[in-house]
């Protein structure tokens, strides 16, 4: 666990001397980030540690890596970086525990979901417990602004979950309505990742936080939209189940995009497709599907340009030593929407 005990600042130094690859932070596997340690949780709670062992074993830890990458330019102590990384991963994983139960998803990262393996009651309690630990850890750290921002992020996440559940089975939902939900559900943690290290640094510059908030929103939406495309087997290198969302009664952002302006009867036919081939045929064939993907990509290119516009404004709000962050934040849109690994 060498890297788990090595702060991103030290990693950055190693990168600058050529001892470590410069993209280690984002490209590294999740295993070098020590997010979960069974010794941090009570041993007398039956099945809790087994459940968390399963939960934290398979994740990519992207959000924690994002924290680490940002901190490599801010220089927060390793302990604070660890706290932030743990916080975001705890919240994210708590939401997955609850999400799987709400969606009745039986698999998580290719393994049985916690609620099927350990009972729904334990899955709910394990999620609640993670959120409680977040607050215990953060309040122990003593930065009240960080506690407040984190509580806001959790609230937004839950509001998004709640609203998303309320539109399951609604195949006429618009992209704009979904954007609102994704802005709460998905973007809340991206916004938190971008802002929390600065809050921990006691940098409360309003203009900076507003820019980071906008950038986090865009990243969240791009991530969600990229993820939604996987459902239609577009750039699906992860091998995500095809039409999984649709079959679960959820019209995702790409679904809402292609059904724009269509009649209820047409939408009805589309969402009843048994497989992707039938979906494409109903849409008007392979060519029509490709055209829709291109149009969706073009719409998201606009979002990426907006992200880059905010990125260009960032250096003037950062200290000289922090400006390298801009370069590291740039490829995130490639990673999150286009699903391309950093060059």
């Amino acid at each position: 666990m060498r890297h788990a005990l090595t702060s991103s600042v030290e990693l950055r130094k190693l990168a600058s001397t050529g001892s470590i690859d410069k993209d280690t932070l984002l490209a590294s596997s999740g295993s070098d980030l020590k997010i979960y340690d069974s010794h941090d949780f009570p041993a007398y709670l039956p099945k809790l540690n087994s459940l968390y062992d399963d939960l934290f074993a398979g994740g990519k830890g992207f959000r924690a890596k994002l924290i680490r990458m940002i901190n490599s330019h801010l220089g927060l102590p390793g302990k604070t970086e660890q706290l932030l990384s743990q916080t975001v991963e705890f919240i994210h994983n708590a939401s997955l525990l609850h999400d799987d139960l709400i969606d009745r998803s039986v698999l998580r990262r290719g393994k049985p979901a916690a609620w099927t393996k350990y009972t729904p009651e334990y899955a709910v309690l394990a999620g609640d417990y993670l959120l409680a630990r977040v607050m215990v850890n953060l309040s122990g750290h003593g930065n009240i602004h960080l506690v407040q921002r984190t509580a806001e992020a959790i609230s937004e996440l839950l509001e998004g979950e709640w609203l998303q559940d309320s539109v399951v089975g609604d195949f006429f939902v618009t992209l704009e309505q979904l954007d609102r939900i994704h802005n709460l559900k998905t973007a809340s943690l991206f916004k938190w990742c971008l802002r929390a290290p600065f809050i921990a640094l006691e940098n409360h510059d309003k203009a900076l936080h507003e820019s980071l908030e906008e950038m986090g929103t865009i990243l969240g939406q791009l991530f969600q939209r990229g993820d939604d495309l996987l459902d239609y087997d577009v750039r699906n290198d992860e091998g995500k189940a095809i039409l999984g969302d649709l079959k679960s009664g959820y019209l995702n952002s790409f679904g809402a995009f292609v059904t724009r302006g269509k009649s209820r009867a047409e939408i009805d036919r589309l969402v009843k497709s048994r497989d992707l081939a039938e979906f494409k045929a109903t849409l008007g064939g392979e060519q029509a599907f490709e055209t829709a993907v291109k149009a969706f990509d073009a719409a998201n290119e606009e979002l990426i340009r907006l992200y880059k516009h905010h990125l260009e404004r960032l250096p003037s709000m950062l200290a000289e030593s922090q400006r390298g962050l801009v370069k590291d934040l740039e490829p995130l849109t490639d990673l999150l929407y286009w699903r391309r690994k950093p060059q």
Partner: peptide, 11 residues
């Protein structure tokens, strides 16, 4: 109506 977030409320 189940939700203020979906399409039904507009309809």
């Amino acid at each position: 109506l189940k939700s203020p977030a979906g399409s039904a409320v507009e309809a």
